[in-house]
């Protein structure tokens, strides 16, 4: 799973959001590091829809412009859980090794 996909799913895990709200939430979550652009966002949304990981929650017309809210499906929830578990396992391994490294090298790096 590529990072934009993971972040979009994470944004929708909280509540149904429309496109622009997803962009803003992703920017907030990543401290401004990732700002999704429309092309990338809709490539991800379209693929996730076709894969059944997200679906349309509702549509609204705000200032004569269509606003479509997306939400996570059951399959999307599982995919996000699996991906975050995988990331956590890798992060745990990385942290453990860093801890061992610091312990064996002692004050060498200090």
């Amino acid at each position: 799973m590529r990072e934009p996909t993971f972040l979009v799913l994470t944004a929708l895990a909280e509540e149904p959001r429309h496109g622009y709200a997803v962009i803003e939430d992703v920017a907030t979550m990543t401290g401004g590091r990732v700002r999704l652009r429309a092309g990338t966002l809709y490539a991800a949304l379209d693929r996730l829809r076709l894969d059944g990981l997200i679906e349309i929650d509702r549509e609204e017309v705000v200032q004569s412009r269509l606003r479509r809210y997306y939400r996570l499906t059951g399959a999307g929830e599982q995919a996000l859980a699996a991906e975050s578990a995988r990331l956590r396992r890798q992060a745990t391994i990385a942290e453990r090794r860093l801890k061992i490294r610091r312990a064996t090298l002692g004050g060498a790096t200090a």
Partner: peptide, 29 residues
């Protein structure tokens, strides 16, 4: 229509040209 809404929501008022990075991203996608 939806993408237009997102693109325009992300543009400051008075802007006349699409942001190059957005334009490139659209072409690529």
């Amino acid at each position: 229509e939806e993408m237009l809404g997102v693109l325009l929501a992300g543009s400051p008022p008075g802007r006349r040209l699409p942001r190059p990075a957005d334009a490139f991203d659209l072409l690529r996608a």
